[in-house]
């Protein structure tokens, strides 16, 4: 079961660029952006897509604290997850730097940060990518 939950070395490598740089795709047909990039626009189905940088600032639409975490997640539980509105797109992402869940609320500003996402075990590769955190000094932290 080791590693069943996270990306393995080669696929993590293959998919690193969008994850490292928070690059999504813009549909040349309907103009909408999405992340992570699929092979077709999730809104209109067009295959005519181009790479697009997503904004690193957004607002929290909804959040949850997950206690029923998977293997390898227990030492970080509860794990917070948010649905984030970036204006031009929405993303589901892990929320980090949450010390006081009572300060999480729909509408608070959040920002993208580069973090560890998972690792196979302490001998495997580390998967990095973007998570979101409440913008320090804007309602969370003091």
């Amino acid at each position: 079961m080791s590693g069943v939950g996270g990306l393995r070395n080669v696929e993590a490598w293959r998919t690193r660029i969008p994850r490292y740089r928070f690059l999504g795709a813009r549909c040349k047909s309907c103009g909408k952006l999405h992340y992570p990039p699929l092979k077709a626009c999730p809104y209109c189905g067009s295959r005519d897509l181009e790479e697009a940088q997503l904004p690193r600032q957004g607002r929290l639409l909804a959040f949850t604290s997950v206690y029923s975490v998977e293997e390898g997640g227990r030492e970080e539980s509860p794990i917070f997850v948010g649905l984030i509105d970036l204006g031009v797109a929405r993303v589901v992402a892990e929320l980090t730097d949450v010390t006081d869940p009572s300060r999480l609320a729909a509408g608070i500003p959040v920002e993208a940060v580069f973090r560890r996402i998972s690792e196979e075990d302490d001998e495997g590769v580390i998967v990095y990518g973007v998570k979101f955190r409440p913008v320090p000094g804007a309602g969370e932290g003091d």
Partner: peptide, 16 residues
């Protein structure tokens, strides 16, 4: 550093 931070992640943020 938080549990999902390390010298690399902090280095990326400073570099950006």
């Amino acid at each position: 550093a938080g549990p999902d931070e390390d010298s690399t992640t902090m280095g990326v943020e400073a570099s950006l």
